[in-house]
């Protein structure tokens, strides 16, 4: 695994929903090797621990990556105060990303809330071969819809309160598409109950490639400190894998819920 640490310039900042920010960062050496599903471990002034933020878009030509994050606590609040032209200290690209396969004819991408951003880089890879199903609490927290449309993916949006798109959870349209068959892969990132349900539904429908991106409180971000453990199966034996290195993307069959 290759990664680098440096201070990179923020080329673009935008507030894309309440408490949700998007930074486009110029970092050619990161963009060059980054894969969908990987993350950046970001230093925030005044805090001991870095904040892991998933990579939303990778533009190798422009040498930029885009990250989208939600204010969850003091650290991300401080992070949101950076401006265009400021330097951001990143250790990136980290982790094991999604498996990409150019032979796949139809894939489903499912993002729940702030788990949506890493799905965009997949939508940009698969384009029209992908269906993006994204779910949010309500209209106020819907993000990245223009970007998903521009990627060529078929776009389905759900909200818990029905204030935007379909009223209900992402699992409902997901179930409908599964019934029609012909799905080569399912990729998902979002809250644990959503990921669990998607994994079960994929298994019931014999989807061989169901990959999910997990989240856990992290230390070093590169696999040394063994803090971000999650229970997995390896050769039928229980094993604490680490979200930062062996993940964040896991095959759904490996995860013990």
């Amino acid at each position: 695994m290759k990664y680098t640490q440096g201070k990179y310039i923020i080329k673009n900042k935008s507030a894309i929903a309440k408490n949700t920010y998007s930074y486009t960062v110029r970092c050619p050496e990161v963009a060059d090797i980054a894969q969908p599903g990987q993350f950046a471990h970001i230093r925030v002034d005044g805090f001991t621990l870095r904040r892991p933020v998933s990579i939303c878009e990778i533009d190798k030509k422009c040498g930029t990556i885009r990250i989208v994050f939600e204010i969850r606590g003091n650290g991300t609040e401080e992070l949101s105060k950076l401006n265009e032209g400021s330097l951001i200290d990143m250790l990136a690209p980290l982790g094991h990303g999604f498996t990409l396969n150019s032979k796949f004819k139809k894939v489903i991408l499912i993002g729940g809330g702030i788990g949506t951003p890493p799905m965009l880089s997949l939508a940009q890879y698969y384009g029209e071969k992908s269906v993006a199903i994204t779910g949010f609490r309500g209209a106020g927290s819907v993000i990245l819809q223009e970007d998903f449309k521009n990627s060529g993916a078929e776009n389905i949006v759900c909200t818990d309160d029905g204030s935007y798109g379909i009223h209900g959870f992402v699992t409902q349209p997901f179930g409908d598409i599964l019934k029609k068959g012909g799905i080569d892969a399912v990729y998902a990132c979002g809250p644990m109950p959503m990921l669990k349900k998607i994994s079960e539904m994929s298994k019931e429908n014999n989807i061989a490639n169901c990959e999910i991106s997990l989240e856990e409180r992290m230390g070093c971000g590169i696999g040394a400190c063994l803090v971000c453990a999650c229970k997995t199966k390896k050769n039928d034996e229980e094993y604490f894998a680490h979200v930062c290195k062996e993940g964040p993307v896991f095959n759904a069959e490996e995860v013990i819920w």
Binding site: C225, V227, A229
Partner: peptide
Amino acid sequence: NGNPSPRIAETPSGMLNSV
């Protein structure tokens, strides 16, 4: 195998771990 997650928490000017 170590302890279940979460195994880390931030503190003012520091952190806790329970790996």
